[in-house]
Design a protein around this nucleic acid. Structure first.
Ligand SMILES: NC(=O)c1ccc[n+]([C@@H]2O[C@H](COP(=O)([O-])OP(=O)(O)OC[C@H]3O[C@@H](n4cnc5c(N)ncnc54)[C@H](O)[C@@H]3O)[C@@H](O)[C@H]2O)c1
Ligand SMILES: NC(=O)c1ccc[n+]([C@@H]2O[C@H](COP(=O)([O-])OP(=O)(O)OC[C@H]3O[C@@H](n4cnc5c(N)ncnc54)[C@H](O)[C@@H]3O)[C@@H](O)[C@H]2O)c1
Lengths: 256, 256
DNA sequence: CCATCTTTGTGCACGCGTTCACAAAGACAT
DNA sequence: ATGTCTTTGTGAACGCGTGCACAAAGATGG
């Protein structure tokens, strides 16, 4: 059941909190950039700024991994890159399949950021027979009939779903039955999966709606605070300006 | 500063918790589906299942909006659709610009799910002069030189960034200076914005890394629990099977 | 009008995540 | 060796989010 009644604290993956896990990739990216600039060490303060988080939070996050810093100096960049990579399981290769090679699926297939970490597009799968055999991003699209074989042959455990919403659950079921235990879902559907299977979803529409909510609230707040101060300003059709509002209160960056 | 030192509780947008706001689109989607099937009313239990959440959570979420249910009956679907739409600001039209019309930008432009709610692609913007004037999803791509004019003319307050990472901050700065106060960022970059501007990010790479972490953990757990029980099973090269693991503990669905 | 039954709305307790603030650790200079 | 200075690692407090469990509300039937 996707409702996910969690018996256990839900996050004792070996003591590493879920929120911390979600930030590790962020740290890793910042560290990789430093590594490329041959910076040997970095303080929690510097790294936190680069990653867009609080330095205390970063230190606590790292403390779950172990004591990898040196007091008075900071963290060794290379060493930390390795430790985080290992913790995230990026030292091994992760074959990934993308199911549904339409606009979005093709874009993902073409995305270079995949291979940069341990992820490799093992196969592209689509139900449209006229797509079969066509090259997308240098990989031949295969038919969904062969899904099970493809998963098995390549030892795939991570699947990406970019089919229309209507087909998502069905595709998900087949992926899971074939052995996939992690799914990244781009379709606007609530997937139901057995226990032990992780689903993460990316939903553009939801993100926009959340932004719209705050946008509306900002507009209302501005309107509510405007009259007392400058009441007789020219009633332009567009009252919007490039300023930063009366006082922001929403954290600008949110972990996905 | 994107670090977002929050003076206020960070979420008293008028009492509606941020976590609730993030779920409203989910409820709205489920309700819309019911509406299309002409279902007049729905109980919290049914709707919660459809949205993939706990029914108590759903009721509490709705309680922030007001008392829109009828005890013993449930919620009026149409009425709730309207109330949530209004709360999210979807009763008005939101012009959106997409900056960076490459693989991903083009896919988003072609995405139908945009218009379904109040979002309208007002303009497509790219820095590549050879793209200027080209039609993508029926809309002519405009040059980034005209960004400010486009924002202003169309009264755009929401921008989507799909440029390479290196250009994202620069594009963001221009969008903000031109009056955009909400940004959806697909580039793998931590954006720094002034207070009052909301940034949400969608990061495929991070999602995959989080999945990889759990995947690795599941594999380790399986290995640690296997030996005591069935030690002498055929040492196949692939020990992975389609079962549901010893015990899942991660909530399958996570709000972005 | 009353009894029963369903379903909402919420008080309450609990746990996770965040942040502060500081003691301990170690580098580095003298 | 000793002192100073920087920065880590973490104890503790607090606030947000979640889920249980139940009283109140209202529908429905007799
Ligand atoms: N395009 C976007 O920017 C975007 C954004 C957010 C969400 N989404 C979602 O992503 C999904 C894909 O969007 P898109 O624009 O690429 O759509 P699309 O129609 O271009 O592509 C869908 C592809 O899936 C294939 N397909 C259909 N049923 C299948 C099945 N059972 N098995 C395998 N393949 C199947 C189709 O042949 C097609 O190639 C949709 O659910 C959409 O809502 C898209
Ligand atoms: N393609 C994906 O699936 C995917 C997935 C996750 C993240 N991303 C990220 O999304 C971004 C876009 O990815 P893509 O695959 O579409 O890349 P792309 O190279 O295909 O497209 C980038 C586009 O941005 C334009 N551009 C560059 N600088 C610009 C500027 N200053 N102003 C306006 N436009 C500019 C380029 O001309 C190009 O058309 C990247 O940051 C990438 O890391 C992509």
């Amino acid at each position: 059941m996707a409702t996910g009644r969690n018996h256990r604290p839900a996050t004792r993956s070996r003591g590493i909190p879920e929120a911390t896990v979600a930030r590790l990739p962020l740290y890793l990216r910042a560290l990789t950039a430093l590594s490329e600039r041959s910076v040997p060490t970095v303080s929690s303060e510097e790294l936190a700024t680069a990653a867009g988080v609080n330095s205390a939070k970063l230190r606590k996050d790292f403390s779950y991994l172990g004591s990898y810093g040196t007091r008075g100096v900071g963290y060794d960049v290379e060493y930390l890159v390795y430790q985080i990579s290992r913790e995230l399981g990026l030292t091994q290769d992760w074959p990934v399949v993308i199911v549904g090679i339409g606009n979005l699926g093709a874009a993902l297939a073409n995305y270079g950021g995949f291979a940069s970490r341990g992820f490799r597009v093992a196969a592209l799968i689509d139900a449209d027979s006229s797509m079969t055999g066509k090259q997308v991003a240098g990989i031949a699209v295969q038919h969904v009939d062969d899904l099970e074989t493809i998963i098995d042959t390549n030892g795939v455990s991570i699947g990406v779903i970019t089919t229309p919403g209507g087909a998502a659950q069905q595709v998900c079921d087949r992926l899971v039955a074939a052995g996939v235990t992690s799914i990244l879902n781009f379709a606007p559907t609530v997937l139901t999966v057995p226990e032990g299977v992780d689903v993460r979803k990316v939903d553009l529409s939801i993100e926009l709606q959340i932004l719209a909510f705050h946008e509306q609230r900002k507009a209302a707040e501005e309107l509510a605070q405007e009259p007392p101060s400058a009441a007789g300003l020219p009633a332009a059709s567009e009252g919007r300006r490039g300023d930063q509002g009366p006082d922001g209160d929403i954290p600008a960056v949110m972990p996905a």
